[in-house]
Design a protein around this nucleic acid. Structure first.
Lengths: 245, 245
DNA sequence: CGTCGAGTTGACATAATTCAAGTAAGGTGG
DNA sequence: CCACCTTACTTGAATTATGTCAACTCGACG
């Protein structure tokens, strides 16, 4: 099997050397199984480890005052999770599996070695951090400045886009693996209102739904509604340093 | 004078070697003056350069559909700005000075050199990216899940906190250097509503205002209202690799 | 076959926006 | 130094988007 999901995911962007692949694979030596709903870490837990998703999907969230929560990110195979743990001694987000998953924990110290010995990988991680930063700012704009319908469309497109990259397929139909309540927690809405927005999108024939599956019928319209920006269209990794010989 | 604001800022967290300082200072060799309102880059501009703030304050924002905008971040001396440019060929955010400023542009290629030759600096930048990521998720939770008053309080506290770190002083009075409209663009509110929230905070004696100056009178209450989390209290840089000899 | 969580829908409540009409403050040219 | 302009701030009234509450349906599962 693939030695490392992490390496495989990074390979989408840059051709890795064998040495680099091996170094990345070392992060995935340990595996841990998770079932849907299992919690990887809670806010406030000691933050000793970072994780790579080997299989399945997870999400991270934080609680706010009144008991509601904000979903921060969704994670897929190849993503690193809990990277914030690198710089904090306690976790600042809760991480939970949204479907059965396999994750690979590694000690913070392994980062030290990796970054110290593989400058190009360090640069690549820096680059991916930037991508994540931009993804977060896109969500900030979505939640801060767009309508409920737009936000719901945006989160759905976001998931679809990521699944396409993972599978390599031009799918239009997918399972978000989030309840309407969770979609609400991701978009800053209530589950009731998410439901109404889904209904409207359905009535307008932008999407259709069957069970938990969502099919994007009119993708152009969907992107328009969502204010969607394809951040993968424009990537530039030309400046990465050369691999160390 | 200080060779490098960037180095100085990083020194808050890690003792840099002379070699590292010199490498960082090299990024700040060129200086460019800006006046309040000057635009450093616009969304869609070619993204060839990254910047370090030498002096003054800036902000970044994106436009959304209907002509409104979302302010993404505020920048202060020592911050790197436009780091997203590293991985995109066109800029994804507009950057503008909120007061007279001096910024130091450098080519993406300089990053290549820096990250390749100074692994510990690379690790430190990785770490700071994580801090920025967490700051963004805090704002996501603030905008997605808290009331207007809470959001306004949060953005004010955020600015105050950063000014304190910069000046090293325990100030309670400061000038946000943002109009109420801009505060609205940062929090996802209208300027009218920002005004009302400021009034309420004033009436409740949490803050007082004179001209554009804001004074935090009851900081405990302010933090409570804002749902504030001090992300600087809990930092852990112990895992950084050693400086290269 | 009953229970439980998720989804659905309507009626109503409320936070925040929009519109509109002002006031204060700072900058500029005469 | 004053009159004028402009931009930001302030406030009230009406409107709208979204939230709240409550009831009901549906399908999964033991």
């Amino acid at each position: 099997m693939s030695g490392s999901c992490f390496a495989e995911y990074l390979s989408h962007y840059v051709a890795l050397t064998e040495v680099e692949r091996a170094a990345l694979a070392r992060l995935e030596e340990n595996k841990r199984d998770m079932k849907r709903g299992d919690i990887l870490q809670r806010e406030g837990d000691p933050a000793d480890e970072i994780y790579v998703v080997n299989h399945g999907r997870l999400m991270s969230y934080v609680h706010v005052d009144d008991g509601s929560r904000q979903i921060l990110r969704l994670y897929y195979a190849g993503d690193s999770v809990g990277t914030g743990n690198a710089i904090y001694s306690t976790a600042c987000e809760t991480i939970v599996a949204t479907e059965d998953a396999i994750i690979c924990p590694f000690e913070k110290d392994a980062l030290k070695t990796l970054l110290g010995e593989h400058p190009r990988v360090a640069a690549l991680l820096f680059a991916l951090n930037q991508a994540e930063r931009v993804a977060l700012t896109d969500r900030l704009a979505s939640i801060g400045r767009t309508s409920a319908k737009s936000r719901v469309a945006a989160v759905l497109l976001d998931i679809l886009q990521r699944l396409r990259i993972m599978t390599g397929d031009a799918i239009e139909s997918f399972d978000p693996r989030l309840t309407q309540e969770e979609l609400g927690d991701a978009t800053g809405l209530t589950s009731v209102h998410v439901n109404r927005m889904l209904r409207e999108l359905t009535e307008e024939k932008v999407i259709s739904r069957k069970g938990s599956m969502v099919r994007v019928i009119d993708e152009a319209r969907m992107r328009e509604v969502a204010n969607y920006i394809d951040r993968f269209a424009d990537l530039d990794f030309s400046w990465l340093p050369d691999a160390r010989p």
